[in-house]
Design a protein around this nucleic acid. Structure first.
Lengths: 265, 265
DNA sequence: GGCTATGTCTCATTTAGTGAGATGAACTCG
DNA sequence: CGAGTTCATCTCACTAAATGAGACATAGCC
């Protein structure tokens, strides 16, 4: 089945071909992709495929698997990805704070940013109490609308931008996550009223619960969101208040630090 | 100053141009790169630059900064990077184990893999005790020879491969890290004799110490290394023995799990 | 409302990537 | 150990497709 060439890929075809190769490789997970995977999914000739594979390998974007004839994503992507995840320096600021929170409360804490119609997880710190979550690790991506961090991010966008995102995601939200737009709107209202989000409860992960707060710049635009996730049974009123306060303090400190760095020099 | 076009970049030029753009962007850190940065560093015309920027943006490999005229690395890199870091499924296996170790002992634990002449950090879990390290996070890269994990990785390569790597890195090792090849050889001998590595002491980070053990596949080739790092004052004989045993148990369990997954289906 | 720098467009030029098929190399299985 | 299969590279002619020069448009800034 050919690769999803949806997003009206314009621009240099060589570039698109190369990126398609990376996507196909990624789709293979930790087993990578074989020559046939590429030839089936893509629409160019074998010599061209090999030329691109070679180029990508030289650049460190691919490496060949120990299994002959298979290719894996290269570590250059990891390195660039780590950079990419440090959007506006936010991750570096957040990492020690997430760690402190996780150690103090035992729950799992996350940093999210918006990526188009999705939310991406920039950083996780798991605590002592095991927890289930939609994202397992850095690099996890969710359609905006899923999870408490999504709500915190959505709430501070302009109404029309928000609507555009939600109508774009509506189908996936209901099909894959059993989440209705109306419920998201309600939670956004809660976020705006109380300053934190609880996430919309779909049919998935019913035994977990969480909290999220936005990270806003001076003009009120969302830079990201900090969230946490825990077993529902741990979410007593007291614990909720404590964790929320902890998160708010850390975020306030972050934003303070950030103002010295973000838009200057 | 023009971008380092060292590594005899062959392959489609468009691809190389694109990757150069990404590298220049990465070099800008969390502030990204401006048009002039690109035009200065690269050797193609402005329309071409914009065409490539556009293409890379559409693919999610770049995004434009809130500051007009600047570009940042895109989150697609983060997502692919997360995949790339899961070489052979190792990271997924290691993550919970690193977390358990960090929580149990309070030190910081790392998963490394070899990447050509470098070691890359695939995963970190920091413990309760603060620690300094050569790598701060996932995606950090060190020349093989630096750090205890390097030793564990090097020790199980063939002698000539090892020599090739070390002679390649020799200059950087002595210049940037004040580490001599002879000392590395000595530590490799220690690794082979005792089954763990202590790292070579350069002039950097003198107050920290660490341990590392290799992760070997059935045929004795190194898949990666697990390491830890702690304040020297914490490294008593007892603590060392305990932590080492903890790491060895976790790695053994990992390799067990891995054999079910790595080379099959 | 001018000024500067970012981003886009057009179009002719020719580079430079492409496809077809043959050839070489590496691993596999009988 | 040799036949068979699959991966990887090479050659060469072709032309599609990326490129460069410079003009034009747009956005932010004082």
């Amino acid at each position: 089945m050919p690769v999803n060439e949806s997003s009206t890929a314009s621009g240099p075809t060589t570039l698109n071909h190369a990126m398609q190769i990376l996507q196909v490789t990624a789709r293979g997970g930790h087993r990578g992709a074989s020559i046939d995977d590429y030839l089936n999914a893509l629409s160019f000739s074998r010599p061209t495929l090999y030329r691109l594979l070679k180029g990508l390998k030289q650049q460190g974007f691919l490496r060949s698997s120990p299994v002959r004839g298979r290719y894996l994503l290269g570590y250059e992507l990891l390195v660039l990805g780590a950079q990419a995840g440090n959007g506006a320096g936010l991750r570096d600021l957040a990492r020690p704070r997430l760690l402190a929170l996780a150690q103090r409360w035992g729950d799992s804490f996350y940093l999210f940013a918006r990526d188009g119609v999705n939310a991406v997880c920039l950083e996780v710190q798991n605590g002592a109490y095991p927890v289930g979550s939609f994202v397992r690790a850095t690099g996890g991506r969710l359609p905006l609308g899923v999870g408490q961090a999504s709500i915190a991010l959505l709430a501070y966008l302009s109404a029309d931008e928000r609507d555009e995102i939600l109508s774009h995601n509506a189908e996936r939200l209901i099909d894959e996550y059993a989440i209705a737009i109306a419920d998201i709107d309600a939670e956004i209202a809660h976020q705006l009223k109380h300053g934190y989000a609880r996430g919309v409860e779909g049919s998935l992960l019913p035994e977990y619960s969480g909290l999220a707060i936005p990270i806003l710049d001076h003009s009120g635009h969302p830079l990201g969101a900090m969230s946490c996730s825990m077993l529902k049974s741990r979410m007593t009123e007291d614990h909720k208040r404590e964790v929320l306060q902890g998160m708010q303090e850390e975020v306030a400190a972050m934003v303070n630090q950030a103002h010295g760095l973000l838009y200057l020099d």
